[in-house]
């Protein structure tokens, strides 16, 4: 494992911890999109099917369990927790996330490396992860006033994606040169979705202002 991959995994882990910290200690999910969180839970559930069939490493198994457990517990908190659910802004979080799922299923059935259940599910999870942040970004645009933890959560997610691209570049040059178009392109699309957010995040950080997105 190279340094970019490890740093990517750690920023991903921190992003989840920041979100859980916000929900668990402040008992608030204000500014957090349930739609995006549900999509992430689906992404992990379809991608980590190999957890019982293929053993890669203890690290790999533990991280998969953490991401599965955290994503489902975040969804549980927002939907069921008697205090947290009150802070959920249902009227603002209106992105029709179900309409993202069907195109991803069709795309995964058409464009995949192997036409097997596990492989199609894995490919579906890559396509879905690429667009899963969209409901969250739309919600941010609407709420405008973004609290620090929510801003950090999205920043860390974007950092994780950027580091994964550096990891693929590194792997391409240090390992056998295989081409992974599906992973690379969906990963690149996903990272580009953060470009706008990054711009305003760094802008507010540089000027020491509160993060605000333009209407």
């Amino acid at each position: 494992m190279n340094i970019f991959r490890l740093a990517g995994d750690m920023t991903h882990l921190f992003s989840v911890l920041v979100l859980l910290l916000k929900i668990h200690t402040i008992k608030s999910c204000a500014g957090i999109s349930l739609k995006t969180q549900e999509l992430y839970a689906l992404v992990f559930a379809t991608r980590y099917l190999d957890i019982f069939t293929d053993y890669i490493s203890l690290y790999n198994t533990c991280m998969k369990l953490i991401f599965l457990g955290s994503s489902f517990s975040i969804v549980w908190y927002i939907r069921r927790h008697k205090i947290v659910r009150r802070s959920y802004d249902k009227e603002q979080d209106t992105f029709r996330h179900h309409f993202l799922i069907l195109p991803c299923i069709i795309l995964a059935l058409l464009i995949n490396e192997k036409f097997t259940v596990k492989e199609v599910m894995w490919t579906f999870s890559l396509y879905l992860e690429a667009v899963a942040i969209l409901p969250q970004l739309v919600l941010l645009q609407r709420t405008r006033n973004i609290d620090n933890l929510t801003g950090q959560y999205i920043f860390l997610l974007g950092a994780y994606r950027s580091l994964y691209i550096l990891n693929w570049i590194y792997r391409y040059f240090t390992e056998q040169h295989y081409v992974h178009w599906i992973t690379w392109i969906s990963g690149l699309v996903q990272t580009l979705l953060y470009a706008d957010f990054f711009y305003y995040y760094f802008h507010s950080w540089k000027n020491n202002e509160k993060l605000q997105l333009p209407a």
């Binding site: 991959r5 890669i56 998969k64």
Partner: peptide
């Protein structure tokens, strides 16, 4: 094993 199989990623 395929050393460059990205299935070892998360």
């Amino acid at each position: 094993t395929d050393s460059n199989d990205l299935k070892d990623e998360l």
